[in-house]
């Protein structure tokens, strides 16, 4: 006997779809991290996991626990809130660091430094 058996069929289907979609987006993001060619292309890939990947997984978790416990449990959205606030900051800092390092090396692939930056 499993606690998941207590889920009504509609909730079980919903949870399954959400969990699978969330994992799929995170997976595709990591595939991109592996397959894309240079750093500036790769930096786009993990955003898939932090936006829709996390979103669907949180939706699955909220559905599952709210139905199982018979009351709304939605403090998982705090993960979403923190992640939406922090991901842009980390990515921007990382890109700026990469740009700085490339310019230090005199790379021709990145734009030259603007006067007021």
């Amino acid at each position: 006997m499993n606690h998941l058996d207590a889920l009504p069929p509609w909730a079980a289907i919903l949870v399954a779809v959400f969990v699978l979609l969330g994992a799929l987006f995170a997976f595709i993001g990591s595939v991109g991290l592996l397959r894309l060619e240079n750093f500036y292309q790769r930096v786009h890939a993990p955003t898939l996991g932090t936006t829709l990947g996390t979103f669907f997984m949180l939706a699955g978790s909220i559905t599952c626990f709210s139905v199982l416990h018979g009351r709304p449990i939605f403090y998982e959205i705090l993960i979403g809130v923190f992640l939406t606030l922090t991901t842009p900051i980390t990515l921007m800092l990382l890109v700026r660091a990469a740009l700085y390092r490339d310019r230090e090396e005199g790379s021709q692939d990145v734009p030259r430094k603007l006067p007021g930056e």
Partner: peptide, 12 residues
Amino acid sequence: TSTPGTIWVSYD
């Protein structure tokens, strides 16, 4: 930055 496919690089 949160939209996949575009990222903020720098601002003059």
